[in-house]
């Protein structure tokens, strides 16, 4: 069944778009990443103009993330205190990032440099997570002693005890200076606004390995945090670029519901290290995909984008 999208100005197959939504919802429910990295290229591949794909994708993730957040909240997986500090940090960081981007764009190949850095960063994070989670899975499979702390990722705790404003985060079971989530949120916010792709990939490993929060709480908190970022992007894209297609986003959200529930259901039954392994595989896959796009010669170096008026 086909439907004509008023903003994207093209007709699409409803079932196909809904299945994209389901896929993204599944990832969102399972590992707490938004899926913008997935939905944008899928939509562009279908023929949706890039700016409409990015904007409608953000609107969809805002919808999906609020649904997923509801489920995570019912499962008690959201650390609201942490999420609030991260969100404040990422908003401030995002604003700085936008300003920085505006200044840096004049330097020419700015976009390429950021893209390059991002791929390297993702590659390192993904590889590190993959090694860690594989070890944890193997260790657990062996009948040996220490599967002690499968809920949290291993590693030495950050040396932050002497910093001020030590705050308890009872849901995550950690004690940190309040500046830590603010700073990390800020860093993620800068990257998000520079790259234009979701902060999930930065935020999730950060919470896992630096803030040392339990995997399940990380997934829930990341999902909740994502809600604010993507909602803000969606409103701004609609206001400035008129590029949010409500029919497209609506179909994606409807499709994502099934995926989200399946993801959240599966996530609640998987041990922490397996969840981390899945996330690691996703991060590595994205890094590989981006690297291939950088290395493989395009069949047509020119690209055309038509302004929809």
């Amino acid at each position: 069944m086909e439907i004509f999208l008023p903003i994207a100005h093209m007709d699409v197959n409803i079932a196909l778009i809904a299945s994209y939504g389901a896929l993204v919802g599944f990832l969102s429910g399972l590992v707490g990443v938004g899926g913008g990295f997935l939905i944008t290229p899928l939509l562009i591949f279908t023929g949706v103009p890039p700016i409409v794909a990015v904007s409608s994708g953000a609107a969809q993730i805002a919808g999906t993330a609020s649904g997923a957040s509801y489920l995570q909240w019912r499962h008690g997986n959201i650390d609201f205190k942490m999420a609030l500090l991260l969100a404040i940090g990422s908003w401030a960081g995002g604003a700085c990032g936008v300003l920085a981007a505006r200044l840096l764009v004049r330097e020419g190949h700015f976009g390429n440099v950021v893209m390059f850095l991002y791929v390297v960063l993702l590659g390192i994070i993904g590889a590190g997570m993959l090694i860690e989670s594989l070890r944890a899975v193997v260790r657990r499979a062996a009948p040996a002693a220490a599967a002690a702390r499968s809920a949290t990722a291993p590693g030495s705790p950050p040396r932050t005890e002497r910093l001020r404003w030590q705050t308890d985060f009872p849901v995550s079971g950690v004690r940190l200076p309040a500046a830590a989530p603010l700073a990390l949120g800020g860093a993620a916010g800068i990257l998000t606004s520079l790259m234009g792709v979701g902060g999930g990939f930065i935020m999730v490993p950060t919470m896992l390995y630096l803030l040392r929060m339990p995997t399940r709480i990380v997934v829930g908190t990341s999902t909740f945090q994502l809600l604010f970022t993507t909602a803000a992007v969606s409103v701004m894209q609609a206001g400035i670029n008129h590029s949010v297609d409500p029919l497209l986003a609506g179909i994606l959200i409807l499709g994502s519901v099934f995926g989200t529930r399946l993801g959240a259901w599966l996530g609640a039954r998987l041990p922490g290290e397996k969840l981390r392994l899945i996330l690691a595989l996703v991060v590595v896959a994205v890094a590989v995909k981006m690297t291939l796009a950088l290395v493989i010669a395009p069949s047509e170096p020119y690209e055309m984008s038509i302004e929809v008026h």
Binding site: A59, Q60, A62, G63, T64, A65, S66, G67, A68, Y70, L227, A231, S234, V235, A238, V244, P246, A249, G250, I253, L254, S256, V257
Partner: peptide
């Protein structure tokens, strides 16, 4: 309005 509607729909 649409972003709020999208979030409400999700929940």
């Amino acid at each position: 309005l649409f972003t709020l509607a999208a979030m409400a729909l999700g929940v």
